Computed example of a mutant assay.
Amino acid sequence: MGVSLKDVALRAGVSVKTVSNVVNNYPHVTTVTRARVQQAIDELGYRPNLTARHLRKGRTGILALAVPELSNPYFADLAGAVIDAAARHDYTVLLDHTAGERAKEILVCQGFRSHVIDGLILSPIELETEDLLGRTDTAPLVLLGERQYDVPYDHIAIDNVAASRTAVRHLLDLGNRRIAFLGARFESERQPAHLRLRGWREEIRAAGLVPDESLVIATDGYGRTDGAAAMAALLDRGERPDAVFAYNDLIALGAMRTLTERGLRVAQDVAVVGFDDIEEGRFGGVSLTTISPDKQAIARLAVDGLVQRLARSPSGPPAAEPRRARPGFRLVVRESTARRTP
């Protein structure tokens, strides 16, 4: 049999209630008593039954994270951060993959797994406002990503326009004037790609220049092959830029490959900035300058928001208003924008 609370109480010479208070980190326990109970826990190897604890509260102890693409390093990094944040609250995370398809995103947000999860963190791509307004599942929901929705759910997203302007300003400060944007999408003004393109336009105008729309290249996807193809299309029509701002790091890495194959030097001939700060960008032949979203803060805000709503008693005060949190970001300068030598 496993070690019980009663066993710990007997070893520490306290009541079972006191051991429970220590295990659940309740504040009203003296420092001396807490140390004695913790010593007994360590000596006996006691491990709390988290499943039983959640069941007593009518919970499963599981949160779900649904992302468009688990193979994308950004979402893999984000998933790891969410798992770490959830573990601090004794929650397990169930990962789901929507492929960015509206039907799958609707299925997830409508609670097809509501019997096994307590709350959902969703990063949507194609989901529409009406899909969320028609949601009947009562499990708390937190939205991630830059697509904008006027809905009564928490939404965690960095300021894409400001982040993009920071990237473009860096390229302008290096003396670049023909700055391409790779990875545009034109279907919706609420899409992240549109917001990053908007930042590109705003910062170029702020520098007293006219955005050259011939340097904007749309892509079918957001991977390395899309970036390579976009860069090739731009060069093939004679529109050689002196810098590139890519929608994400994967597109930037693909573009850098094409530049190298065409005999152009990254940084010296064409500076490149990406977005996401994935690990691969740090270890290429030329390390990638990028916008680094605070993934740890995104994960922490999302998980904490769910846990706070789950802790609310049905008979308690009304739920708090939905949050619109804006985690930070920073520009990480690496070799792909190294200053050119005369």
Rank of each mutant, 00 (worst) to 15 (best):
residue 70 L to N: 10
residue 178 R to G: 03
residue 34 R to I: 02
residue 251 I to P: 00
residue 59 R to Q: 15
residue 311 A to Y: 04
residue 212 D to G: 11
residue 178 R to T: 02
residue 166 T to F: 04
residue 139 A to H: 14
residue 251 I to F: 04
residue 333 V to R: 07
residue 20 S to T: 05
residue 240 R to T: 14
residue 134 G to M: 02
residue 204 I to Y: 03
residue 252 A to V: 06
residue 100 G to T: 00
residue 274 G to C: 00
residue 292 S to C: 09
residue 195 L to K: 15
residue 30 T to I: 01
residue 273 V to Q: 07
residue 292 S to Y: 01
residue 174 L to P: 00
residue 48 P to T: 06
residue 53 R to K: 14
residue 222 Y to E: 14
residue 79 A to R: 02
residue 185 R to T: 10
residue 297 A to M: 07
residue 74 Y to T: 09
residue 21 N to D: 10
residue 128 E to R: 14
residue 337 T to D: 01
residue 166 T to P: 01
residue 231 M to L: 06
residue 102 R to K: 06
residue 323 R to N: 05
residue 35 A to P: 06
residue 11 R to S: 14
residue 182 L to P: 04
residue 217 I to P: 07
residue 3 V to T: 13
residue 51 T to F: 04
residue 340 R to T: 14
residue 15 S to E: 10
residue 107 L to T: 15
residue 321 E to H: 13
residue 194 H to R: 13
residue 85 A to G: 05
residue 1 M to P: 13
residue 295 K to P: 01
residue 284 G to L: 12
residue 182 L to M: 03
residue 251 I to L: 14
residue 178 R to W: 00
residue 259 L to V: 01
residue 13 G to T: 04
residue 157 A to P: 00
residue 28 H to I: 01
residue 246 A to P: 02
residue 177 R to N: 00
residue 267 A to N: 11
residue 172 L to D: 09
residue 268 Q to R: 15
residue 209 L to R: 12
residue 66 A to L: 06
residue 179 I to N: 02
residue 67 V to P: 04
residue 257 R to K: 15
residue 24 N to L: 14
residue 317 P to L: 11
residue 145 G to Q: 00
residue 7 D to N: 10
residue 331 L to M: 15
residue 229 A to L: 15
residue 17 K to I: 12
residue 326 R to E: 13
residue 41 I to M: 08
residue 151 V to Q: 03
residue 132 L to S: 09
residue 298 I to N: 10
residue 75 F to L: 14
residue 252 A to R: 02
residue 274 G to F: 06
residue 75 F to K: 00
residue 76 A to F: 03
residue 288 L to V: 05
residue 274 G to A: 08
residue 314 P to A: 09
residue 276 D to S: 08
residue 46 Y to K: 03
residue 314 P to K: 07
residue 82 V to L: 09
residue 158 I to S: 13
residue 14 V to K: 05
residue 279 E to R: 07
residue 247 Y to S: 11
residue 38 Q to I: 00
residue 247 Y to C: 12
residue 269 D to T: 05
residue 285 G to S: 14
residue 286 V to S: 12
residue 158 I to V: 12
residue 240 R to K: 10
residue 92 T to Y: 12
residue 123 S to Y: 12
residue 94 L to A: 07
residue 295 K to R: 11
residue 73 P to N: 11
residue 143 L to G: 09
residue 154 D to E: 04
